[in-house]
């Protein structure tokens, strides 16, 4: 390309610079457009819907009108004890279940990584398989094992004299659900951590061995610190997943009286929208849940980044 006079040259350089600067945006455009269309837009629409209420009049035999009512729905949802109970239930669930699941995932990942066992691929697959089973099917399968009349496990406990044993009782059902979630997701998290382990250079292990480290110390001082970011990532996903639990309670509610329609935040929003036809209130619940999820997941990110000193 030939440059003409100096002025046109600098102009062309400038134009080129702008072009170069805009290249990253061009590359993220496909993602950006989809992100706007399928993520930001629905949230904005949910927020918009939450600003309205449906109003009947008199006996209500004519079509109702949808009227603007400002933050009424959001305010009501913000003060809804059922919403907080469901949120609190899921936090309790998360505090207990997420560490257990990640602990198990880390344990299995280290086991697969350290021991040169035969059939390693088979074990890796076996741990991962539950993740491949759809959540509803998993809940159905476990539902069968929890069912007092049909479950061999429950019948065993009843046979040895523990008559009140019941997976689905009011106090047990949350942990029965935690068991299903752990069963389903441990393998998935294990794969994430295992992949991180695979990326650690083997020279580090050799150096540690020369310094006299045994397998346990290698795991404790080299592997775990180096896969910490992967664990944080799994933790983040798990917290988001916990707040959005839906399949398990919505399947189990048909076999036990312990699960009410507002058992988890998502089930509550679903019931409001599709069972009791309160679309606008459901939208308000959805917006609040999105905000709560945002706070908890970013809260965790900030805490962990501060600790690792980044």
């Amino acid at each position: 390309m030939m440059l003409g006079s100096k002025t046109t040259g600098s102009f062309r350089l400038k134009a080129g610079k702008i072009w170069i600067k805009s290249i990253p945006y061009v590359f993220i455009m496909p993602f950006g457009i989809l992100f706007l269309l399928f993520f930001i837009a629905p949230i904005m629409y949910a927020f918009y819907s939450s600003l309205f209420v449906v109003k009947h009049s008199g006996l209500g035999l004519s079509a109702p009108v949808t009227v603007f009512n400002g933050l009424f729905n959001l305010n009501q949802a913000f003060h809804d004890p059922l919403f907080y109970q469901s949120l609190g239930r899921m936090l309790l669930f998360g505090v207990v279940q997420v560490p257990i699941m990640l602990g198990l995932a880390l344990f299995f990942a280290l086991l697969l990584d350290s021991v040169t066992i035969r059939l390693k691929n088979l074990f890796r697959m076996a741990f991962f398989v539950p993740y491949a089973i759809p959540g509803v099917i998993a809940a159905l399968l476990w539902g069968y094992l929890y069912n007092p009349q049909l479950s061999p496990i429950v019948q065993f406990f009843h046979a040895i004299g523990w008559k009140s044993f019941d997976f689905l009782s009011q106090h047990a059902v949350l942990w029965s659900m935690a068991n299903i979630v752990t069963w389903e997701w441990t393998g998935y998290n294990m794969i994430i951590i295992y992949s991180a382990l695979q990326a650690i250079p083997h020279e580090l292990y050799e150096a540690a061995k020369i310094d006299g480290s045994n397998g346990f110390n290698i795991a404790r001082y080299i592997k775990i610190p180096l896969v910490a970011p992967a664990i944080v990532l799994s933790g983040l996903f798990s917290i988001i997943g916990t707040l959005q639990i839906f399949n398990e309670p919505s399947t189990l509610q048909y076999i036990t009286n312990s699960i009410t329609s507002s058992y988890t935040p998502n089930l509550y929003a679903y019931t409001a929208a599709f069972v009791t036809n309160q679309y606008n209130y459901a939208a308000a619940l959805a917006v609040l849940l999105a905000i709560a999820t945002f706070i908890f997941s970013f809260g965790l990110l900030r805490i962990t980044t501060r600790q690792t000193g980044e």
């Binding site: 539902g143 069968y144 009349q149 048909y254 076999i255 036990t256």
Partner: peptide, 13 residues
């Protein structure tokens, strides 16, 4: 009994 009706346990009963 207090089983949810039309559940597997209930059919069993």
């Amino acid at each position: 009994k207090t089983d949810p009706d039309f559940s597997t346990a209930w059919y069993n009963d």
